[in-house]
């Protein structure tokens, strides 16, 4: 395991579980979705990450210190969530540390949740969902579930690193991305991503509360969005808007 990133397991974590990743990115779509899933499934903290590459920040909960990057779970599923923006300078090592641990745990499949920024998001009633996967068999499953794969285009940030590392190491991974605001927390996009995940793994996570409490979520996520936006700019996230160069079919 990478020396730079340590994982401390608080409970026994069996191998072969599914894992959902919610890392800070555009619209905080993945983070909001992961938090909602953790709360709906009443998951307990089972592990946490420690790394010198993160800023010296802890979360205080009822007076006790907690790591900002934690894994919650039950006997079937694990959900990783980050409560701070990940510094762009350490994103490679942090993601590699996460995927190293995911590999050690021999997870069945990785679902990584996020957003696809669109400039006119506020004019769109219902965001569309897109996917990408680490292998062709998973692309077929996406197709069966009527989730359109992104044919060609750039992916920047946590999603890009997760998908490429998983593909390289033969870890099955699916990225689910809903159209979203670039720099405003987007609980509606999170609900679309959860609905797609429900189809993929036969879950029934209710999203009505996420929609009803959308304004509360947007208020609460303001500061995390500000910090995430600054890191995204450093990662040149706007590269995702670029049209890939000319190619011959």
């Amino acid at each position: 395991m990478s020396e730079k990133v340590k994982v401390i397991e608080k409970a026994e974590i069996p191998s072969g579980l599914k894992i959902i990743l919610g890392l800070p990115d555009v619209g905080l779509v993945g983070v909001i979705a992961a938090s909602h899933i953790i709360s709906k499934l009443k998951l307990e903290e089972v592990a946490y990450f420690r790394s010198n590459l993160l800023p010296p920040v802890i979360m205080l909960e009822k007076g006790l210190p907690r790591s900002p990057i934690r894994v919650f779970g039950n006997k079937e599923i694990l959900v990783l969530n980050s409560e701070i923006a990940i510094p762009s300078a350490s994103i490679h090592d942090i993601i590699e540390g996460i995927i190293n641990w995911v590999g050690e745990k021999k997870v069945e499949i990785v679902y990584t949740l996020g957003g696809l920024p669109i400039p006119n998001r506020h004019e769109i009633e219902k965001p569309r969902i897109f996917g990408a996967a680490s292998n062709e068999e998973l692309l077929k499953i996406l197709d069966e579930k009527e989730i359109k794969a992104i044919g060609r285009g750039f992916l920047v940030g946590p999603q890009a690193l997760i998908l490429s590392l998983c593909a390289e190491r033969g870890i099955p991974a699916v990225t689910l991305l809903a159209e979203c605001f670039y720099n405003y927390p987007d609980p509606e996009a999170s609900s679309i991503v959860i609905q797609a995940l429900n189809r993929m793994i036969d879950m029934k996570i209710d999203v009505s509360e996420l929609i009803e409490k959308g304004e509360e979520v947007r208020l609460a996520m303001r500061d995390m969005m500000r910090r995430t936006q600054a890191e995204l700019a450093r990662m040149k996230k706007s590269h995702e808007y670029d049209i890939p160069g000319y190619y011959i079919r």
């Binding site: 605001f181 405003y184 927390p185 959308g214 304004e215 509360e216 947007r218 208020l219 303001r222």
Partner: peptide, 8 residues
């Protein structure tokens, strides 16, 4: 174009 997120 200036936008602002104004919940509640």
């Amino acid at each position: 174009i200036v936008t602002a997120d104004l919940p509640k």
